[in-house]
Design a protein around this nucleic acid. Structure first.
Lengths: 344, 344
DNA sequence: CTACGCTTTTGCAGCGCTGCAAAGCAAAGC
DNA sequence: GCTTTGCTTTGCAGCGCTGCAAAAGCGTAG
């Protein structure tokens, strides 16, 4: 492996100082056309490519942001990531991806910045469950944007939809259909389950607004928001003496699992059990039946997160911690409206 | 933002040279217990964390590998990525993710290493379509492992399953069911569609082995392997005067789209049309019906790819380009076997 | 008591680039 | 003609770390 071409090599060939080559390469102003051309030619002739590492070291920044998600194969996250990567690239940033596998220890390690100084300039973090302590222990100098989970304490930005309102809306939709026994799948009644609890809160509020009280045995907890958990929870619900006739699932994956269970027992969606999901992942637009869902504006969440993070990275004094509410909407499909319903 | 703690700061506090601190931090041999302890204490007291950038620059490596995939939100890729990230992390490497959005120009830019020298030490590349030229133009010094698409020319490793054999097996399964008009969705009869063409080849071979010739109008091309393409292609097939009674879809996503179309027309899967997919993504295990599919050993593909790449990165002389065949198996589910079929 | 071999520690240079401030230079002003 | 002004170009130091080879320490042998 021969030595790589450096700035100095180019400088020598072009007969200028290496600093001038650097100026040309970085497109700085104040370089005569003549010089620029000469340098440009030398660059091409030698096939020079800047050493990003050296540049970063000299500049004291890495040009990378880390995105931390629990699971990469969860469609919601991969769809979000896709937009994040695009937005970051547009600003010249690379994206380093890390998955925590939902391990709280792992999440904590990440936010503490661990031993990886300068590997990235900031973090976009979508925690599964992050306790107050972990947040308090974090490196205060590391720009941070949190997605979804918890609201800002002022030292970082938070971007997410209004979970309580969205969940209330979802539940109201089921009640509007005239369903009598509406269940909820996905509660997480423990410290790290804030996001889940907000959904449960919306679920309760929707009932309360009509003078109803949800049956407690219809609120099912699940460790994760995935298909198997949804399938299992639904099986449990159907085994009840008085099974539900509608279910609010805290993610589309849970809904897909739940529907699978319902259908495999010979029941029909939505006739026997109406199902509503959350996230609006592509799967739900092509499943049988298609899934009614809460659709967060993922594109906006992603671009806002990147925007805020870059602002934090580049600004001298850390900006006020912002609480960004992304819009969401209810998308009605077959799993509540019946076959043939065209989604909007 | 105060200055970060450096090796020198620690050295000063511990009363040793900075080189010794480096030795301790990196766990090099030949450091007395006494010294190690003193240094350790100083490290903790100051909260020292190594600057990865500086280390990498000094060592001439970045400790990062890039994984390039067409689309991050395609479950097959995100499932694969998940395993790749895990395997890389285990060896102390970080993973930089890039999506090409299926843009050949973008793919070419990546493999040429572009202007990003030393940002990563090697690439795991899962191209959508990569022509011979792009491969020829690539940076020969950049360790490369290619997934799926094309076989090795000796200068890189290739990891993938035997597409022809797997496709033949899939098609045979449909023929074994006694289906008369077996269609194929996903052909790509142009330069960059090698992977698709291998599947079509297997499709033809399966027919030929029984003295049959597939109807050409039942082989449908699609630009991508996603749900909408599958849905569209299936609609076209069902509009034929003699529609198929079985379909081999070149990905599970295509199968999901196809099934959606079939069901929404009031037909049944598999009674009216049997459907088989490819990739064994989680979606297909919870869809209605569940999808019979070709299941590649993704875990092995991922770990082998990482293993080979790291070998290339660390070995002085580039190893022989290896052609790795990962195993696959046919998993029979409801979309061909009928309701209630338990997957293996 | 010196010499030798071993382990431990150190100093220095340098990875390739950029920030900074000074130097060079040509055109404009007095 | 000489100074001033403003644009170009340059030199140097240094980002924080590691490779290298030399130096120091230290126990043992001659």
């Amino acid at each position: 492996m021969r030595r790589e071409v450096t700035l100095r090599d180019v400088a020598e060939l072009a007969g200028v100082s290496s600093r001038t080559v650097s100026n040309v390469v970085n497109g700085y102003a104040n370089v005569t056309e003549h010089t620029r051309e000469r340098v440009q030619r030398a660059v091409e002739q030698l096939g020079y490519r800047p050493n990003v590492l050296a540049r970063n070291l000299a500049q004291g920044r890495s040009g990378q942001i880390a995105v931390v998600v629990p699971y990469l194969d969860t469609p919601y996250f991969s769809e979000l990531l896709q937009s994040v990567i695009r937005a970051a690239r547009k600003s010249g940033y690379n994206v380093l991806i890390d998955q925590t596998d939902g391990d709280p220890e792992h999440e904590r390690a990440f936010i503490a910045h661990g031993s990886r100084r300068l590997l990235f300039d900031g973090i976009i973090f979508s925690p599964l469950g992050l306790d107050q302590q972990a947040l308090a222990d974090r490196d205060p100098n590391l720009p941070l944007v949190i997605l979804g989970e918890r609201s800002s304490d002022g030292s970082f930005d938070h971007v997410g939809i209004d979970d309580v309102a969205a969940s209330r809306q979802a539940t109201e939709h089921l009640l509007d259909l005239g369903r009598q026994r509406v269940a909820a799948i996905g509660d997480q009644p423990y410290a790290t389950g804030e996001a889940a609890q907000r959904r449960t809160q919306g679920f309760r509020e929707a009932h309360a607004a009509r003078g109803l009280t949800p049956r407690e045995d219809l609120i099912i907890s699940t460790p994760r928001f995935n298909r198997p958990d949804g399938a299992r929870a639904m099986a449990h619900l159907l085994d009840l003496p008085e099974p539900p006739d509608a279910v609010f699932c805290y993610s589309d994956l849970v809904a897909l699992g739940a529907i699978r269970t319902i259908v495999s027992r010979g029941l029909r969606v939505p006739e026997d059990v109406a199902v509503i999901g959350y996230d609006d992942i592509e799967d739900g637009r092509f499943s049988n039946p298609t899934i009614t869902t809460i659709s967060p504006d993922k594109e906006m969440i992603a671009t806002t997160a990147v925007e805020r993070l870059l602002l934090r990275i580049t600004s001298a004094t850390p900006p006020e911690g912002l609480e960004v509410r992304a819009p969401h909407k209810l998308i009605i499909r077959e799993s509540t409206a019946g076959p043939g319903h065209r989604s909007c």
